[in-house]
């Protein structure tokens, strides 16, 4: 049952979030490229740095943090509403009477699913973001494909990818556990359920940003 529920959650979090991650990442990469093209104008910075900057910005910061903030909104509110709705409709009481450990059955599959799927989504986000940067660079007309690809291949640090995955795992845990907590302990009616859902998103985003800062200090210090 736990396995089945985990797979259901993986599908819900992963496949359900793919489109929004795709769209957001594409434009984040594209905007990063456009902004850097603007910054490069009239400077002596090598032109191929465009690919290098888009790649590292995407991997180190944008893919993990932006995607997690988007997922805190989409997945976090969804989880809080789902568990909170179950609490209000006595589903959780029904499970407890059957002897099911509800905290474990309802929360654990979601956290495990998020820990598996969100790093994968963030990998996709990084690739799409770099792709968005590439297309925006070519579309600007002032850079060539070779310049972007040369930058993409320069100064690559595998450590940055590891940093991205550390962030992905930490953020996945934060956003699901906060959402599960808010949903599990909801009391009252639909207004309280809405408030719990909102709290799941707001607290999730705030804690993700604080964790982002702490990880950045710890891993780059």
């Amino acid at each position: 049952m736990y396995y089945k529920e985990t797979v259901r959650q993986m599908h819900s979090i992963g496949v359900g979030s793919l489109m929004i991650i795709f769209v957001v990442s594409f434009f984040i990469g594209a905007v990063t490229a456009v902004q850097f093209i603007y910054q490069l104008d009239g400077t002596f910075i090598p032109r191929y740095y465009i690919g290098y900057i888009v790649r590292d910005m995407s991997i180190i910061e944008l893919a993990a943090t932006f995607s997690s903030i988007i997922l805190a909104g989409k997945v976090g509110s969804n989880i809080a509403s789902e568990i909170g709705g179950m609490r209000q409709k006595e589903h959780i009481d029904a499970m407890e009477i059957m002897g099911v450990n509800t905290a474990s059955y309802l929360v654990l599959p979601k956290i495990i699913a998020a820990l598996i799927v969100i790093p994968l989504l963030i990998s996709v986000a990084a690739i799409i973001s770099i792709g968005g940067g590439y297309i925006a660079t070519l579309y600007s007309g002032s850079f060539s494909s070779e310049e972007f690809i040369q930058g993409l291949r320069s100064f690559f640090e595998p450590y940055n990818v590891m940093m991205m995955y550390i962030k992905a795992v930490v953020f996945a845990y934060i956003l699901t556990s906060i959402a599960c907590y808010q949903g599990y302990f909801v009391k009252g009616g639909s207004i309280e359920l809405g408030q719990a859902s909102t709290r799941a998103v707001v607290y999730g985003i705030i804690v993700i940003l604080i964790a982002d800062y702490i990880i950045a200090v710890l891993l780059t210090g």
Partner: peptide, 8 residues
């Protein structure tokens, strides 16, 4: 066994 008011 329990039957809930809202069926659950």
């Amino acid at each position: 066994g329990m039957l809930f008011q809202g069926n659950a």
